[in-house]
Design a protein around this nucleic acid. Structure first.
Lengths: 220, 220
DNA sequence: TATGTAATGTTGTTTTTACAACTAAATAGA
DNA sequence: TCTATTTAGTTGTAAAAACAACATTACATA
């Protein structure tokens, strides 16, 4: 466990908790470290999850099977990543996805009930932990809302303008950098990369904006 | 305030808290009731919000202005609705949206710091409140994730199958009802209603599924 | 039952996007 | 510096979606 303490200390779940206090908090949380061999299930779709997971090493995939049995990989998890926290906190009775080790992996499991129930007046870290948890879920919430805002526009141009506009506004400047390359931006907005490039060029020709690599300028 | 206690007791924020305890909890939370006249700002884009809002009466709109000043209504709020809770819990420094009274409205404002900080050992309701808060944000999280899952598929057919498949799986049955009419479903999936109707008919012709009004059956 | 209305389904046309194949530019190594 | 590789931009064509206009069905109620 000791070798993984840095991962925990650097992550958002234990932010604001002194590294030397971490070990005692983990004891108080009854956190257990488990090893999963490649292709073994960490969580199974249909289960009720009572613990959140934290990747300590290795890789895992979040998998979704549809009605006809077609399986798709929703996301990949690597060291430091938290998972199942939303289902846990939401109290969903059946996980709609599975989590499977894509290679041998060490995982920390923390009972949700231990997180939400302050153990005693002595353990002050609990308050911080709960606040962190709420912050993690809420920030994801904000990110998801923004993505929906952009991705559910009907046309490529509208998606681009919605995204770029919001970037300019949060940045507070007309010129700003985006954290995506073209392919990533296209995936984020759910459009074709090539069509998106064409649309960007067209908007530049129309004098709406200018760009160079991942630096964009919106024009009034 | 008394006339609004039922709204609070019925909502998810104070679930599990006895109605007769509610008044004292509100005092402990330093919750304030404020009246906003039509077209006045409840929250302004760019502000840092430190309180969550709860609609007691009237209507409000969540508004977004883009880079070029085009304003759009993101959502409408009515009695019982909670707002700004995600931004609050996420600690965002600048609200990306405004909230404005669409008609005269009574609103309860609760300081986030009061929610997250248990006041004393005497006040047991706080634990429940924090748990409720986390549940609210997490459930929204799950709903948003699901919507993204469906709405970011490229084609109308894929969006429909993704949505219907997930409904069948969470329901555990091949036949199930959906909580949308056609227009609402089209809006949810970000497609044209008529195109969606056409696609549904095509899929029925192909033997993929069957439907009648808002009752659907997926076929193996 | 007749009638008005809202919801759903169908069809043809126009616009937009996806896809494929390619060119050009930038970048990282050898 | 040269070369391989990644990233970005362009173009033509096929497919899909948006849009509009209308037909049909379901439903409430007069």
């Amino acid at each position: 466990m000791e070798k993984y303490l840095k991962i925990l200390a650097d992550g958002p779940l234990f932010a604001g908790i002194a590294p030397n206090e971490l070990a005692s908090l983990l004891g108080c949380l009854n956190a257990v470290q488990k090893r999963y061999v490649k292709n073994s299930h960490i969580f199974m779709a249909g289960d009720k999850v009572a613990a959140i997971g934290l990747m300590l090493s290795g890789r895992a995939h979040i998998l979704q099977d549809d009605f006809w049995g077609n399986r798709s990989i929703i996301a990949q998890l690597t060291a430091g990543d938290l998972f199942a926290e939303a289902f846990c906190c939401a109290g969903v009775s059946k996980m709609p996805v599975s989590v499977m080790a894509a290679e041998d992996a060490d995982i920390l499991l923390i009972d949700y009930s231990k997180i939400i129930t302050p153990c005693s007046a002595v353990c002050d870290f609990h308050k911080q932990l709960i606040s962190n948890m709420l912050g993690i879920v809420a920030r994801k919430n904000v990110m998801l809302t923004q993505k929906i805002e952009h991705a559910t526009r009907r046309r490529t141009r509208e998606k681009l303008l919605s995204y770029l506009s919001s970037r300019a506004l949060t940045n507070g400047t007309d010129t700003f950098k985006i954290p995506f390359n073209r392919q990533e931006l296209a995936d984020y907005l759910a459009v074709e990369r090539s069509a998106m490039c064409a649309e960007l060029s067209k908007m530049r020709d129309e004098g709406l904006l200018d760009f160079k690599k991942n630096s964009f300028t919106l024009l009034h």
